[in-house]
Design a protein around this nucleic acid. Structure first.
Lengths: 190, 190
DNA sequence: ACCTGAACACCGTTCAAGT
DNA sequence: ACCTGAACACCGTTCAAGT
C-alpha cells in the first residue's frame, strides 16, 4: 500500500506554495495557465513542479480536490434531505453551476468521465462518481429517472450542459434553462 | 462591397494546396494541428499561410465550408419533407453525429454559437443559423417544441450533446441516447 | 502582389550539477 | 532526497528581403 512517507520540510513547503499559486493561476488564466509561470511565481525551479505534479492534470486535480470532494459530499447531503428525484435535480444544478464558475474545473471533470481516459482515476473522482451513482440509483428506484441511463451518462450530460452554458457567456440565465432541459429529458418516458 | 479581384495564379495555387493539406491535417490531428507543419506540407512559407488565413479559425472554416453548407441545406430538405417536430429531431441527430465524426468541426461550430465571440460571423455560419431558425420556428408553430428556446439555444445544446458523446468514445451507442434525451427535453411541457 | 524563411517570443519537459 | 536552471524541441507569428 502507498506509504505516506512524510516529505522533507522544504519539499512540503514547495508543494504547498505550488498548489496555492496554481489555484490562482488556473482561476486567472484557465486550465491552460503557463506551468513555467506557476513555478516561477511559486519561487521554485520548473523541475520541482514536475517532480510534484508530473502532468497538468495532476496539478489541476490537486488544486481542486477540495471542491470535488465537497460536490460529492453535497450529493449525499441532498440525497438524505430530499425526495430522490428532487435531490438529483438539485445536485445537477449545483454541479453544472459550480463547474462553470471555477475555471479549469470543467476540463478536470470532463477527463474524469472520459471513456478510456489515460488519466489515472483518482480517489476524489471515484468519490464523485460513487455519490452520483447513489443519487441515480435512488431516483431510478423511485421512478423519477429514466431506466436507460447510468451515473456516468448523467455526469457526461452535465458536462455537456456546462459546455453549452459556457457558449452563452452573456446570457446568465441560459444555464438554468439548459439544466432544466436536461432534467426534463431525464424523466422516465410515459 | 467585397470585390472578388481574381488571385494571381501562384496565390490561387497556394491557397488551394493549403486548404487540401489543412483538411487532411485537421482530420489527422484535430483542431490543434500544427500550422507550421501544414505550411511545410503544402510547400509554402509560413507567412503565406498567414496571408491567406490570418487565424486558425479562418483556416478551419475555409476547410469545412462545404460541410457546413451541406448541413444547412439538409435542414431545409428535412423541413420540406417531414412534419416540423420530426424534421428538427432528425436534423439534430445528423448535426450531432456529423459534428463528432469530423475532427475539428466541433470547435468550429462551437465558436459559431459562442456569445460575444470575437470571431467574425462568416457567411456559412449565418446560413447554418438561419436554417436552424426555420426548423425551430416551424416546430414551435406546430407545438412540437418548447416555446422558451431559440435557435441559438438548440445549436448550443447540440454542441453540448456532441461534447458529452465525445467523452463516451468506447460506447458508440451513447450519442443516440444523448440526442434522444435532448429531444425529450425539448418537448413542450404539458 | 505575393512569397520565403530567418528571427523572435513563448512554452513544456528533461536532466546534469549542486546542496 | 530534493532542488535548480540551463538546454532542448516545438510552435505561432512577424517582417525584411527577394521575385
Amino acid at each position: 500500500m502507498t506509504q505516506v512517507r512524510p516529505m522533507r520540510a522544504d519539499a512540503r513547503r514547495n508543494y504547498e506554495r505550488l498548489l496555492k499559486v496554481a489555484a490562482e493561476a488556473f482561476a486567472e488564466h484557465g486550465e491552460g495557465a503557463s506551468l513555467d509561470d506557476i513555478a516561477k511565481r511559486a519561487g521554485v525551479g520548473s523541475g520541482t513542479l514536475y517532480r510534484h505534479f508530473p502532468t497538468r492534470q495532476a496539478l489541476l486535480e490537486a488544486a481542486y480536490v477540495d471542491r470535488i470532494e465537497a460536490l460529492a459530499a453535497r450529493a449525499d447531503e441532498l440525497g438524505a434531505r430530499l425526495p430522490p428525484g428532487e435531490a438529483l435535480q438539485e445536485w445537477l444544478d449545483e454541479l453544472c453551476v459550480g463547474t462553470i464558475q471555477v475555471r479549469g474545473m470543467k476540463s478536470l471533470l470532463g477527463s474524469a468521465v472520459t471513456d478510456g481516459s489515460a488519466v489515472a482515476v483518482t480517489a476524489c473522482s471515484t468519490h464523485l462518481k460513487g455519490a452520483a451513482a447513489r443519487l441515480v440509483a435512488a431516483a431510478q428506484r423511485a421512478g423519477a429517472l429514466r431506466a436507460d441511463v447510468e451515473a456516468i451518462d448523467v455526469l457526461r450530460l452535465a458536462h455537456g450542459v456546462a459546455t453549452a452554458s459556457e457558449l452563452a457567456k452573456g446570457d446568465g440565465d441560459a444555464i438554468r434553462r439548459y439544466v432544466s432541459l436536461l432534467t426534463e429529458g431525464l424523466r422516465p418516458r410515459r
